[in-house]
Protein backbone atom coordinates (compact mmCIF):
# COMPACT_ATOMS: atom_id res chain seq x y z
CA UNK A 1 0.00 0.00 0.00
CA UNK A 2 2.70 2.44 -0.95
CA UNK A 3 1.55 6.04 -0.97
CA UNK A 4 2.25 6.42 -4.67
CA UNK A 5 0.53 3.15 -5.60
CA UNK A 6 -2.52 3.61 -3.40
CA UNK A 7 -3.74 0.07 -3.55
CA UNK A 8 -4.43 -2.38 -0.79
CA UNK A 9 -1.74 -4.83 0.22
CA UNK A 10 -1.60 -7.12 3.18
CA UNK A 11 1.18 -7.00 5.78
CA UNK A 12 3.70 -9.81 5.87
CA UNK A 13 6.42 -8.29 8.07
CA UNK A 14 7.51 -9.09 11.59
CA UNK A 15 5.11 -8.77 14.52
CA UNK A 16 5.83 -7.63 18.07
CA UNK A 17 5.54 -10.21 20.88
CA UNK A 18 1.95 -10.52 22.12
CA UNK A 19 2.95 -10.03 25.78
CA UNK A 20 4.40 -6.57 25.09
CA UNK A 21 1.32 -5.01 23.48
CA UNK A 22 -0.11 -3.59 26.71
CA UNK A 23 2.88 -1.25 26.85
CA UNK A 24 1.62 0.47 23.66
CA UNK A 25 -1.34 1.92 25.53
CA UNK A 26 0.93 3.04 28.36
CA UNK A 27 3.40 4.66 25.94
CA UNK A 28 0.74 6.64 24.08
CA UNK A 29 -0.94 7.69 27.34
CA UNK A 30 2.36 8.99 28.77
CA UNK A 31 2.98 10.99 25.61
CA UNK A 32 -0.45 12.54 26.00
CA UNK A 33 -0.26 13.11 29.77
CA UNK A 34 2.89 15.18 29.85
CA UNK A 35 1.55 17.59 27.27
CA UNK A 36 -0.24 19.14 30.23
CA UNK A 37 2.03 21.72 31.87
CA UNK A 38 -0.02 21.66 35.05
CA UNK A 39 0.47 17.92 35.45
CA UNK A 40 4.18 18.18 34.69
CA UNK A 41 4.58 20.96 37.25
CA UNK A 42 2.66 19.00 39.86
CA UNK A 43 4.68 15.87 39.14
CA UNK A 44 7.91 17.82 39.69
CA UNK A 45 6.51 19.16 42.99
CA UNK A 46 6.03 15.58 44.15
CA UNK A 47 9.81 15.23 44.35
CA UNK A 48 10.40 18.22 46.63
CA UNK A 49 9.64 16.35 49.84
CA UNK A 50 11.89 13.35 48.99
CA UNK A 51 14.66 15.84 48.15
CA UNK A 52 14.13 17.53 51.53
CA UNK A 53 14.29 14.16 53.25
CA UNK A 54 17.52 13.33 51.42
CA UNK A 55 18.97 16.64 52.60
CA UNK A 56 17.95 15.86 56.19
CA UNK A 57 19.62 12.46 56.02
CA UNK A 58 22.76 14.03 54.59
CA UNK A 59 22.86 16.76 57.22
CA UNK A 60 22.24 14.16 59.94
CA UNK A 61 25.44 12.40 58.94
CA UNK A 62 27.51 15.50 58.33
CA UNK A 63 29.33 15.79 61.66
CA UNK A 64 31.20 19.00 60.88
CA UNK A 65 28.00 20.78 59.86
CA UNK A 66 26.15 19.58 62.97
CA UNK A 67 29.05 20.63 65.20
CA UNK A 68 29.21 24.06 63.65
CA UNK A 69 25.46 24.45 64.25
CA UNK A 70 25.82 22.99 67.74
CA UNK A 71 23.13 20.34 67.02
CA UNK A 72 23.49 16.69 67.99
CA UNK A 73 20.99 15.29 65.52
CA UNK A 74 18.45 16.94 63.15
CA UNK A 75 15.96 14.09 63.11
CA UNK A 76 16.08 10.45 64.05
CA UNK A 77 16.15 8.42 60.83
CA UNK A 78 13.95 5.56 61.97
CA UNK A 79 10.59 3.91 61.30
CA UNK A 80 8.69 7.12 62.13
CA UNK A 81 10.78 9.09 59.66
CA UNK A 82 10.00 6.68 56.80
CA UNK A 83 6.38 6.28 57.80
CA UNK A 84 5.98 10.05 57.76
CA UNK A 85 7.70 10.14 54.39
CA UNK A 86 5.23 7.55 53.07
CA UNK A 87 2.24 9.43 54.52
CA UNK A 88 3.27 12.68 52.80
CA UNK A 89 4.01 10.97 49.50
CA UNK A 90 0.68 9.08 49.77
CA UNK A 91 -1.13 12.40 49.82
CA UNK A 92 0.75 13.50 46.71
CA UNK A 93 0.02 10.12 45.11
CA UNK A 94 -3.68 10.41 45.84
CA UNK A 95 -3.91 13.85 44.25
CA UNK A 96 -1.92 12.62 41.24
CA UNK A 97 -4.34 9.69 40.93
CA UNK A 98 -7.29 12.07 41.10
CA UNK A 99 -5.76 14.11 38.25
CA UNK A 100 -4.64 11.26 35.99
CA UNK A 101 -6.92 8.33 36.84
CA UNK A 102 -10.32 9.62 35.68
CA UNK A 103 -8.97 10.34 32.20
CA UNK A 104 -7.74 6.82 31.59
CA UNK A 105 -10.81 4.78 30.64
CA UNK A 106 -13.65 7.31 30.50
CA UNK A 107 -12.56 8.98 27.21
CA UNK A 108 -12.43 5.57 25.52
CA UNK A 109 -15.94 4.84 26.76
CA UNK A 110 -17.23 8.28 25.80
CA UNK A 111 -15.77 7.87 22.30
CA UNK A 112 -16.94 4.23 21.99
CA UNK A 113 -13.32 3.31 21.31
CA UNK A 114 -13.30 0.00 23.18
CA UNK A 115 -14.44 -2.09 20.15
CA UNK A 116 -11.44 -0.74 18.25
CA UNK A 117 -9.00 -1.86 20.95
CA UNK A 118 -10.67 -5.19 21.58
CA UNK A 119 -11.21 -6.27 17.95
CA UNK A 120 -7.46 -6.77 17.78
CA UNK A 121 -5.35 -9.54 19.29
CA UNK A 122 -5.55 -7.63 22.54
CA UNK A 123 -7.57 -8.75 25.54
CA UNK A 124 -9.61 -6.83 28.07
CA UNK A 125 -7.08 -7.78 30.76
CA UNK A 126 -4.25 -6.35 28.65
CA UNK A 127 -6.24 -3.16 28.15
CA UNK A 128 -6.75 -2.76 31.90
CA UNK A 129 -3.12 -3.63 32.66
CA UNK A 130 -1.96 -1.15 30.01
CA UNK A 131 -4.05 1.62 31.54
CA UNK A 132 -3.10 0.63 35.07
CA UNK A 133 0.60 0.60 34.20
CA UNK A 134 0.40 4.38 33.70
CA UNK A 135 -0.58 4.89 37.33
CA UNK A 136 1.76 2.15 38.54
CA UNK A 137 4.71 3.97 36.97
CA UNK A 138 3.72 7.47 38.03
CA UNK A 139 2.88 6.51 41.61
CA UNK A 140 5.92 4.28 41.96
CA UNK A 141 8.16 7.17 40.93
CA UNK A 142 6.90 9.28 43.82
CA UNK A 143 6.44 6.64 46.54
CA UNK A 144 8.50 3.51 46.94
CA UNK A 145 11.27 4.36 44.48
CA UNK A 146 12.33 7.60 46.28
CA UNK A 147 11.57 5.82 49.56
CA UNK A 148 14.05 3.08 48.78
CA UNK A 149 16.55 5.64 47.49
CA UNK A 150 16.31 7.43 50.86
CA UNK A 151 16.74 4.11 52.65
CA UNK A 152 19.79 3.45 50.46
CA UNK A 153 21.28 6.85 51.26
CA UNK A 154 20.74 6.35 54.97
CA UNK A 155 22.15 2.81 54.78
CA UNK A 156 25.24 3.98 52.93
CA UNK A 157 25.86 6.79 55.44
CA UNK A 158 24.96 4.87 58.61
CA UNK A 159 26.72 1.66 57.58
CA UNK A 160 25.82 -1.98 57.15
CA UNK A 161 24.84 -2.63 60.80
CA UNK A 162 22.07 0.00 60.57
CA UNK A 163 20.93 -1.39 57.19
CA UNK A 164 20.67 -4.96 58.49
CA UNK A 165 18.96 -3.88 61.68
CA UNK A 166 16.36 -1.87 59.72
CA UNK A 167 15.90 -3.95 56.59
CA UNK A 168 12.23 -4.33 57.56
CA UNK A 169 11.78 -0.60 56.84
CA UNK A 170 12.70 -1.14 53.19
CA UNK A 171 10.19 -3.93 53.02
CA UNK A 172 7.57 -1.72 54.69
CA UNK A 173 8.21 1.12 52.24
CA UNK A 174 7.82 -1.20 49.27
CA UNK A 175 4.79 -3.21 50.45
CA UNK A 176 3.04 -0.18 51.96
CA UNK A 177 3.47 1.77 48.72
CA UNK A 178 2.51 -1.22 46.58
CA UNK A 179 -0.83 -1.82 48.31
CA UNK A 180 -1.57 1.89 48.21
CA UNK A 181 -0.74 2.12 44.50
CA UNK A 182 -2.84 -0.96 43.79
CA UNK A 183 -5.87 0.43 45.64
CA UNK A 184 -5.56 3.90 44.11
CA UNK A 185 -5.08 2.53 40.58
CA UNK A 186 -7.88 -0.03 40.66
CA UNK A 187 -10.30 2.37 42.28
CA UNK A 188 -9.62 5.19 39.83
CA UNK A 189 -9.85 2.83 36.85
CA UNK A 190 -13.12 1.35 38.09
CA UNK A 191 -14.60 4.81 38.65
CA UNK A 192 -13.28 5.97 35.29
CA UNK A 193 -14.92 2.96 33.64
CA UNK A 194 -18.31 3.68 35.17
CA UNK A 195 -18.41 7.45 34.92
CA UNK A 196 -17.90 8.75 31.41
CA UNK A 197 -17.32 12.38 32.39
CA UNK A 198 -13.75 12.98 33.46
CA UNK A 199 -14.56 15.70 36.01
CA UNK A 200 -17.36 13.66 37.56
CA UNK A 201 -15.04 10.65 37.77
CA UNK A 202 -12.41 12.76 39.56
CA UNK A 203 -15.03 14.03 41.99
CA UNK A 204 -16.25 10.48 42.59
CA UNK A 205 -12.73 9.32 43.45
CA UNK A 206 -12.41 12.06 46.06
CA UNK A 207 -15.92 11.23 47.24
CA UNK A 208 -15.09 7.55 47.81
CA UNK A 209 -12.34 8.54 50.22
CA UNK A 210 -13.93 11.49 51.98
CA UNK A 211 -17.54 10.30 51.96
CA UNK A 212 -16.34 6.83 52.96
CA UNK A 213 -14.48 8.31 55.90
CA UNK A 214 -17.51 10.33 57.01
CA UNK A 215 -19.86 7.38 56.63
CA UNK A 216 -17.47 5.23 58.65
CA UNK A 217 -17.62 7.74 61.51
CA UNK A 218 -21.42 7.79 61.38
CA UNK A 219 -21.62 3.97 61.44
CA UNK A 220 -19.17 3.80 64.33
CA UNK A 221 -21.08 6.43 66.31
CA UNK A 222 -24.55 5.03 65.68
CA UNK A 223 -23.75 1.35 66.07
CA UNK A 224 -21.05 1.87 68.72
CA UNK A 225 -18.61 -0.25 66.79
CA UNK A 226 -15.26 0.03 65.03
CA UNK A 227 -16.37 -1.91 61.97
CA UNK A 228 -17.31 1.31 60.21
CA UNK A 229 -13.59 1.72 59.52
CA UNK A 230 -13.89 -1.18 57.11
CA UNK A 231 -15.33 1.22 54.51
CA UNK A 232 -12.82 3.99 55.26
CA UNK A 233 -10.12 3.35 52.67
CA UNK A 234 -7.82 6.02 54.07
CA UNK A 235 -7.95 4.49 57.53
CA UNK A 236 -7.45 0.98 56.12
CA UNK A 237 -4.31 2.09 54.27
CA UNK A 238 -2.96 3.88 57.36
CA UNK A 239 -3.60 0.77 59.46
CA UNK A 240 -1.82 -1.50 56.99
CA UNK A 241 1.14 0.85 56.57
CA UNK A 242 1.36 1.30 60.35
CA UNK A 243 1.51 -2.46 60.83
CA UNK A 244 4.34 -2.70 58.31
CA UNK A 245 6.35 -0.14 60.30
CA UNK A 246 5.52 -1.80 63.62
CA UNK A 247 2.81 0.65 64.72
CA UNK A 248 -0.56 -0.69 65.84
CA UNK A 249 -3.55 1.54 65.10
CA UNK A 250 -4.83 2.53 68.56
CA UNK A 251 -8.31 3.58 67.47
CA UNK A 252 -9.11 1.61 64.36
CA UNK A 253 -9.47 -2.02 63.39
CA UNK A 254 -6.81 -4.74 63.41
CA UNK A 255 -4.19 -4.92 60.67
CA UNK A 256 -5.47 -8.29 59.43
CA UNK A 257 -9.01 -6.91 59.08
CA UNK A 258 -7.61 -3.92 57.20
CA UNK A 259 -5.69 -6.22 54.82
CA UNK A 260 -8.81 -8.28 54.14
CA UNK A 261 -10.94 -5.16 53.60
CA UNK A 262 -8.40 -3.69 51.16
CA UNK A 263 -8.17 -6.94 49.21
CA UNK A 264 -11.97 -7.07 49.09
CA UNK A 265 -12.00 -3.50 47.76
CA UNK A 266 -9.51 -4.52 45.05
CA UNK A 267 -11.61 -7.53 44.07
CA UNK A 268 -14.71 -5.34 43.93
CA UNK A 269 -12.92 -2.86 41.65
CA UNK A 270 -11.78 -5.71 39.37
CA UNK A 271 -15.37 -6.96 39.20
CA UNK A 272 -16.53 -3.46 38.24
CA UNK A 273 -13.91 -3.30 35.52
CA UNK A 274 -14.78 -6.78 34.28
CA UNK A 275 -18.38 -5.70 33.92
CA UNK A 276 -17.69 -2.43 32.14
CA UNK A 277 -14.59 -2.94 30.00
CA UNK A 278 -16.26 -4.70 27.09
CA UNK A 279 -16.46 -3.97 23.40
CA UNK A 280 -20.24 -3.79 23.61
CA UNK A 281 -22.60 -3.97 26.52
CA UNK A 282 -25.05 -6.84 26.38
CA UNK A 283 -28.60 -5.75 27.03
CA UNK A 284 -30.43 -8.66 28.62
CA UNK A 285 -34.17 -8.80 28.80
Amino acid sequence: MAVHKRSYRSYAGALTPAWSRFTIITRYAFRNLFRSRMLTAYFVCCFFYPLGCAAVIYVNHNLSLLTSLNIREVLAIDADFFMHFLAVQSAFAFILTAIVGPGLVSPDLANNALPLYLCRPFSRAEYVIGKMAILLWLLSLITWIPGLVLFGIQASLAGAPWAWANIGLAWGIFIGSAIEILVFSLLSLAISAWIKRKIAAGAALLGVFFFGSGLAQVINAVLETKNGYLIDLGNLLTTVEGSLFGHANPVGISASSAWIALLAACVFCIALLERKVRAYEIVVG
Binding site: T16, I24, Y28, R120
Partner: peptide, 12 residues
Protein backbone atom coordinates in the same frame (compact mmCIF):
# COMPACT_ATOMS: atom_id res chain seq x y z
CA UNK B 1 -1.56 3.07 17.65
CA UNK B 2 -4.26 0.73 16.34
CA UNK B 3 -1.79 -0.89 13.93
CA UNK B 4 0.70 -1.32 16.78
CA UNK B 5 -1.98 -2.98 18.88
CA UNK B 6 -2.48 -5.39 16.00
CA UNK B 7 1.18 -6.35 16.36
CA UNK B 8 3.02 -4.13 13.89
CA UNK B 9 6.33 -2.68 15.07
CA UNK B 10 6.20 1.05 15.72
CA UNK B 11 8.01 2.15 12.52
CA UNK B 12 6.00 -0.17 10.26
Amino acid sequence: MMAELSGLPSDA
